[in-house]
Amino acid sequence: MKHIRIIPKLDIKGPNLVKGIHLEGLRVLGNPEEYAKLLSEMGADEIIYQDTVASLYGRNSLNDLVSETARSCFIPLTVGGGIRSIEDIKDLLKAGADKVSINTAFINNPSFAKESSRLFGSSTIVASIEAINYEGEFLAFTDNGREYTGKKVLDWALELQDCGVGEILLTSVDNEGTGEGYNLDLYRLVKEKLEIPLIFHGGAKEPKHFLDLLNISDVDAFGASSIFHYGLLNLNRIKNKSNDHGNTEYLSKNISFKDFGEFTVTSIKEALSNAGYNLRIENKK
């Protein structure tokens, strides 16, 4: 039996949880740890932290946040952004991360994918791919969709699989943050050929979007951000909204994110389960 995983992805900038559209135009949504704890309680199967500015500055600054989160969330935690060396991976594992997700450093040096997978085990290494549809072809990008890598998405995914990485985290930059649903063409292209688990991310806003993907293919893991972040905000579950960094206007005006509903990990899992799919649903105490 395979149970479909639901994995919230939390983009982090400085001390804040942020969210953009097409990975750009970041809004501050609050304290990532508070979100992670709630999401974990609501049945998230794993959590991904992505440092959104780390690659630009060449460092990952999430160690403290990771260490705090690992103390309260006893589910798998994947951390990405700015990881360039074996030492960087060691530091994050030491802080309490279970897996690391890497994009730019693998593009620059595919043998790093091989080396890190051999050293830490495939299960620790997640390769992240940012895909953009350019004139009908899916191409791989880095730096939140800014830099073209010269690789086609499927070729690159298969190369990473050969390098021994344990999972692929594939984000459709075109769909990301838009709430238009998952990019079915991109998914079909990669899923059919891949033999390692695929986490697919970008565009989910409602249960229908998850079901649309399940209708065309089987799914290992759904990544999602906005739907869960705005769901928690709309449900008034987030206490700690004040923060003086970044663009907090959205929060201080207490705008209800009307584009998004009040969906949570729990309600999405229930919807998919009711449609006949297998997911981990814990019995209520």
Partner: peptide
């Protein structure tokens, strides 16, 4: 897929 990753 292999590795088997997830809840069971």
């Amino acid at each position: 897929p292999v590795p088997n990753v997830g809840w069971n």
